[in-house]
């Protein structure tokens, strides 16, 4: 799952800590999502999209795994 959280964070001038507090998660989770090591739940993805006031697909793009 590709995502543009880092870009949107920079646009809104948010730190990872700020975003974590807004979506009620830990900074480690935000770091893991940004590094694409962890795919967030649908609920968390919606919360992140809500914070940046954009659609979920503007931040997260599904990428098929190469088999």
């Amino acid at each position: 799952m590709k995502n543009k959280i880092k870009v949107f964070r920079a646009m809104h001038n948010f730190t990872q800590e700020d975003l974590a507090l807004k979506v009620k998660t830990t900074r480690q989770t935000i770091i893991a999502i940004e590094k694409e090591k962890y795919t967030p739940s649908l609920e968390l993805a919606f919360k992140i999209a809500e914070v940046f006031q954009v659609k979920i697909e503007d931040i997260f793009q599904y990428r098929k795994e190469n088999l």
Binding site: A20, T25, T26, Q28, T29, A32, Y38, P40, S41, L44
Partner: peptide, 11 residues
């Protein structure tokens, strides 16, 4: 006041 356990920690 910080979040101790979130969905990633649970997973």
């Amino acid at each position: 006041k910080d979040i101790l356990i979130d969905e990633r920690a649970k997973m």
